[in-house]
Simulated scan of single mutants.
Amino acid sequence: MRSELKNHANRLQQQPLKTLAAARAGDAPLEAAGWKISVARHFLDASAQASLLQHGAEAALVKAGEDLFGGAIVNPSEGRPALHWALRAPARLTGEAETIRQSVIPALEFAAKIRSGEIRTARGEAFTAVLHIGIGGSDFGPRLIADAFEDLAHPAIKLRFAANVDPYDLDRAMAGLDPASTLVIGVSKSFGTEETLYNLGRARAWLEEKLDDDAARHLALVTANPEKAKAWLGGHDAYTFDMPISVGGRFSLWSAASLACMIYLGPGAFRKILNGANEMDEHVRTAPLESNAAMRLALLDFWNTSIREKPMRVLLAYANRLRMLPTYLQQLEMESNGKSVDSAGNYVAPPTAPALWGGEGSVGQHSYHQWLHQGSQDVPCEFILAPDYDRDSDGLDAL
């Protein structure tokens, strides 16, 4: 099948993209969870698309989805399922998946108590700031959510992030904050991440300088290794929350790892985010291959990278709310995909998955878009538009 797809790619490369796109302009877009996705502007025609779908069927993409949502071992190197989807499930599940689903509830309840004032500072006052410390998957996801929905934030709560081991990152995050009214949240699945422990140690010292033994009452730790966290606390009690071992760090934004966002935006807003994600889960779980948005987009990546040998994909977010989406997806995809060996350790002939980069669409038009439009490389680009229709109409028309 790969050789057949290569033949299609060679044939279509001789045709202008404009001509191919015009021929497919009438194709109905994919629809999923409120999104409409046009895949018409690619080096594909009906024949090549049929072969690509056949390849997806032969590669058992639908079976892979069933295994994921069925709790099968899909992480063979660690012998575990990948149950991040259970965090988003609205109804009771069974077995380990239900344990995963339940794990986010204490964080949501804690957030509600912080916002209502039921849980207060060591001095009996309301918390007015949250400092989130994590890195990688424990940082990018919460940053994305907090930035995207900043207009829903509690007006009396500031939210800051620190990830870099460079001391200035934490210095900048703590600037202007009072330790007596700040909750420090540390997120590390292993509780062994060097950068996170460094920043957490400095933040704890900052709290202790003002609060002494009460500093632990201003600490919340999210981890899959509570014993390590307990040892780090040195006998003091702090708020602790579970990050399930079957949830990869890069998917942890749906878990208690986003405790800072639950406090900042409110548990109600965060539940809506979980419900929206569950709606997409249901689409991926039930839609047939030909109309399954996630599987079709995965096949496009395979087509452009492994068949057409285009090493990059550019994500252009024409929505200020989603300006951090390319950064988040870089970590999500490039920490996982594009390896030189398969899940059994066998060498895979490159190229596999693309390098992902991009940014805010309108801003990029005055930067690297010139290279994309006028440069010598053929680079697949993904345009995302998610306008707030109740905002200024002239700006929306310009988008």
Rank of each mutant, 00 (worst) to 15 (best):
A355H: 09
E98W: 06
L53A: 00
G186S: 02
A9V: 00
S138G: 08
L211G: 06
M280K: 09
H373W: 12
N164Y: 01
E58G: 00
H366A: 06
E98D: 15
A203Q: 03
D378S: 13
L52S: 00
L356T: 09
N337L: 12
P354N: 03
P244Y: 08
I100R: 07
K18I: 13
D212W: 11
P106L: 04
G26T: 13
T305L: 07
P16M: 03
G234F: 03
V379H: 03
K158Q: 15
L372I: 15
N75Y: 07
E208W: 06
E125G: 11
P387C: 04
F383V: 13
K6Q: 15
D214I: 08
V74F: 12
G268S: 07
Q54T: 00
I100T: 14
S47D: 15
F191D: 02
G176T: 04
L17F: 13
V74K: 09
D139N: 10
F110N: 06
A224S: 15
V104L: 07
D390P: 04
A215V: 01
E125L: 07
F241A: 00
P142H: 06
T94C: 10
A269T: 13
A319W: 04
A22F: 08
P106R: 08
R143F: 10
W357K: 02
P106Y: 07
G124A: 05
R2M: 08
A60D: 13
V104A: 13
H283W: 12
A33R: 08
P179Y: 04
A22E: 13
R296T: 00
D242R: 07
K272A: 14
R172E: 13
Y198E: 13
Q15W: 09
I185R: 02
A180K: 12
G136C: 06
N346H: 14
G136W: 03
A122D: 11
E31M: 09
Y347C: 04
L385D: 13
V39N: 07
E4I: 02
L396S: 12
Y347L: 11
I384E: 02
Q14M: 12
L131E: 04
G141C: 00
V62C: 07
N75M: 09
A277H: 04
Y368C: 06
A173C: 10
R24L: 11
D394S: 13
A89C: 10
G361F: 01
L131R: 02
R11C: 09
K18C: 06
A86D: 06
T128D: 10
R92F: 07
F149N: 08
Q331S: 02
S393D: 15
G361E: 03
I245F: 02
A205K: 08
T99F: 08
P311I: 04
T305K: 05
V363W: 05
L297H: 08
I307Q: 01
W85K: 02
G71C: 00
R24A: 11
G364Y: 11
Y328W: 04
E96R: 10
L177I: 06
N10T: 10
W35E: 11
E290A: 15
